[in-house]
Simulated scan of single mutants.
Amino acid sequence: MALVKAGVVVLDCAEPEILAEFYKELLGAEETAVAANRVEIRGADGFRMAFRRDVNATPPSWPRPENSLQAHLNFVVDDLDEAERGVVGLGGRPLETKDAPGPYEERSFSDPAGHSFTLLRNASAAPKQG
């Protein structure tokens, strides 16, 4: 038996309404709760995120070491190029990082409030040909 039930990922930011809109579009989500200092959304697959107002929020500086990684999200996509165009069109910014080791191709971005996230190409279960 689990000690806790799955919760919600909460990001602090200066403008929760704006950041919620970014992630609503990115995830095809809907708003489920809105309060003076918090907006919560839920994606079609049940994934939940909330955005809490913190007027003193400082964006993470990742990949630079000062004020580095505060939270990091990974999203799986089928087409990295298409997903990147969508992220940038919504106001996300690409982050320059070294190529990550491992079997997955990935690209890192920051949302409009500066939180970092990574798009990971959905790895095919089929063996590589050639």
Rank of each mutant, 00 (worst) to 15 (best):
P94F: 01
A100I: 09
Q70N: 11
T97M: 13
L19P: 02
R53N: 01
R38F: 13
E15Y: 02
F117A: 02
R121V: 08
G130Y: 02
P60Q: 15
C13T: 04
G86Q: 11
N74L: 03
I18T: 12
K98I: 01
P103C: 07
F22T: 02
R121H: 02
D54C: 01
D81L: 04
I41D: 04
A36R: 11
R52L: 14
H72D: 05
D12H: 14
S110Q: 11
A6E: 09
V55G: 10
D54K: 12
L95A: 00
G130L: 12
P103S: 09
E96I: 03
A83R: 06
A14E: 13
V8T: 09
K128M: 11
E84N: 01
G86N: 12
D79N: 15
G130M: 02
A50I: 08
R48L: 14
G91C: 08
A20M: 09
N122G: 04
S61D: 07
R38K: 08
G92C: 05
G7D: 13
V34T: 12
L27M: 08
G102M: 10
G86M: 12
A2Y: 13
E15W: 01
G130R: 07
S68E: 07
H115A: 01
L90Q: 07
A44R: 14
A14L: 10
L119D: 04
L11H: 05
L80G: 04
G102S: 12
P65R: 02
T118S: 00
K128A: 08
N37S: 15
H72I: 03
E105Q: 10
R121D: 02
D99R: 15
D81C: 02
K128Q: 14
T118W: 00
V77N: 10
R85I: 05
P63M: 02
P94Q: 07
L120Y: 11
E82C: 07
R93F: 05
V4F: 15
A36Y: 14
N67S: 10
A2I: 11
A44N: 13
A100K: 08
P103D: 07
R107N: 07
